[in-house]
């Protein structure tokens, strides 16, 4: 069993070499950019950066041009989007239902509930830069706290959206 494994000084040197290589490894550009803007993105607030790295995957900063489809209604995908620059429009059954501006997050409901996209989202400005990512909810054994905080932040976002659409409905 494990207690019988006796690592020599030479063995340990090999472990340390791996540690050195890991510490010298450059961070991916997307990850570096994400961590530099982490505090500006509400859903990533109060999450330990190491845990944040571990609970998201497929992280990309994507540029779109006017009328590009970001999401198509009925599609299946787990990406969540955060608008960094530019505007987007949301269409449900070809009807314009909302305009989204920088700082807004979308696509979270299909990602959380694993349902088909309930609306299409199109780039509505000359161009737009979006942060796209997926949540690795299976990493709960190592990042339970981070996942809890992330879902709490996402719930606040969804709640804010509901409140704003309720207010708009009452106004009408």
């Amino acid at each position: 069993m494990s207690e019988n494994i006796d690592y020599s000084v030479e063995d340990i040197e090999k472990f340390l070499e791996i540690t050195r290589l890991e510490n010298d490894k450059p961070q991916s550009a997307s990850l570096h950019k994400l961590l530099s803007v982490q505090n500006k993105i509400a859903i990533f607030r109060d999450i330990d950066p190491d845990e944040l790295k571990a609970i998201i995957y497929d992280l990309k900063f994507v540029k779109y041009k006017f009328k590009d489809y970001i999401i198509k209604q009925g599609d299946i995908s787990e990406n969540i989007y955060f608008i960094i620059q530019g505007d987007c429009q949301v269409f449900s059954d070809d009807k314009l239902v909302a305009t989204l501006v920088p700082g807004i997050i979308f696509g979270e409901s299909a990602a959380i509930f694993k349902t088909k996209r309930n609306a299409s989202v199109i780039c509505a400005s000359q161009d737009a830069t979006l942060l796209s990512f997926c949540i690795d909810e299976k990493n709960v054994e190592f990042c339970a706290q981070a996942l809890f905080t992330l879902y709490k932040n996402l719930a606040s976002e969804i709640n804010a959206k509901l409140e704003s659409s309720n207010a708009a409905f009452i106004k009408k």
């Binding site: 690592y7 340990i12 472990f15 340390l16 791996i18 540690t19 890991e22 190491d50 845990e51 790295k53 571990a54 299976k138 990493n139 054994e141 190592f142 990042c143």
Partner: peptide, 14 residues
């Protein structure tokens, strides 16, 4: 102890 004494990495990834 082995991890601590040798300052090994404890990844958050599974």
């Amino acid at each position: 102890d082995f991890i601590e004494n040798n300052h090994l990495i404890e990844p958050k990834e599974n």
